[in-house]
Simulated assay, not measured.
Amino acid sequence: MPRSFAVSLDRLTTAETVIPQILEAGRHEFAAACADRPEAWIRVFNPLDPGAYGDVPCALMLCGEAEASTELAPDADSEPIGAAQQPWSPIGLGCGIFMLGATMVATSVLCPRARDPRDAQRCSDYSGAALGTLGVFCGFI
């Protein structure tokens, strides 16, 4: 779903100056939308000239240069940045749950079988830290 926001323009705004004003007013929203997809493009529709629009690469918004570039067109392979993205994938969530279970098994089943208390503590510390870290990385899948 495309993102949208409202911008108030003054009376002196013309069809030629409206897109740069929209880009400047929405800089934070555009930068947030572009953060995950710097290769994407932003399409800004001109409210004063129906059918007119400007395409701007996200890389320019992230660099702070908000110039409308209507002569540059996005590649056929580029995707719109307004698509909803799922923050956790089912695979990543399942991996994280598996890693939590593995940590619990290591600390409550395997580590108590250590030969002395010092080895049991090391087992608990290392397995908890290692498996917990891997569980966090599962969230990025």
Rank of each mutant, 00 (worst) to 15 (best):
P2E: 08
I19N: 13
W88I: 02
E65P: 00
G96R: 08
C111V: 10
E71K: 01
E65Q: 03
L72H: 10
G128E: 01
A52T: 06
A6T: 15
E67S: 13
I81E: 13
F137D: 00
L131Q: 03
A129T: 02
S78L: 05
R3L: 10
I91V: 15
E65R: 05
C123T: 06
L134W: 04
A106W: 12
S127W: 00
G96W: 06
G92F: 06
T103N: 15
T14E: 00
T107Y: 02
P50N: 07
V109C: 12
S108M: 12
G92P: 09
I22Q: 06
A84Q: 08
V18R: 11
G54V: 05
C63A: 12
G132L: 06
G139L: 15
R27Y: 02
Q21P: 07
I97M: 06
C34G: 10
E24M: 00
Q85I: 05
A40F: 05
P47H: 06
R115V: 15
A130P: 04
V105W: 08
V18M: 05
A59W: 01
A84D: 09
I81L: 13
R43V: 03
F5Y: 02
V44W: 02
D49I: 09
P38G: 14
L9T: 14
M1D: 06
L110D: 01
R11D: 11
G139S: 02
A66M: 07
E79T: 14
A120W: 09
D36T: 15
L93T: 11
P90F: 01
R27N: 00
A120Y: 04
G51H: 04
L134S: 03
A59I: 08
V56Q: 09
G82F: 07
G26P: 08
D36E: 12
L110Y: 07
R27H: 04
S89L: 10
E65D: 13
E24D: 13
R118V: 15
C63E: 14
R122A: 15
S108W: 04
L62S: 01
I42M: 06
G26A: 10
C111K: 02
L48C: 07
S69M: 03
Y53Q: 01
P38E: 12
M99C: 10
E39M: 11
P87K: 10
E67N: 08
L60S: 09
L134M: 11
V7K: 04
C138M: 01
A129P: 00
P74W: 10
V109W: 15
L60Q: 14
L48V: 10
E71Y: 09
A52E: 08
F5E: 13
D77V: 08
P38T: 14
A52M: 01
F140P: 07
A83H: 07
S124E: 01
S124H: 03
R37A: 15
D125V: 11
T14Q: 01
E71F: 15
G82C: 09
L60Y: 08
G135P: 05
T17F: 00
V136M: 07
T107L: 06
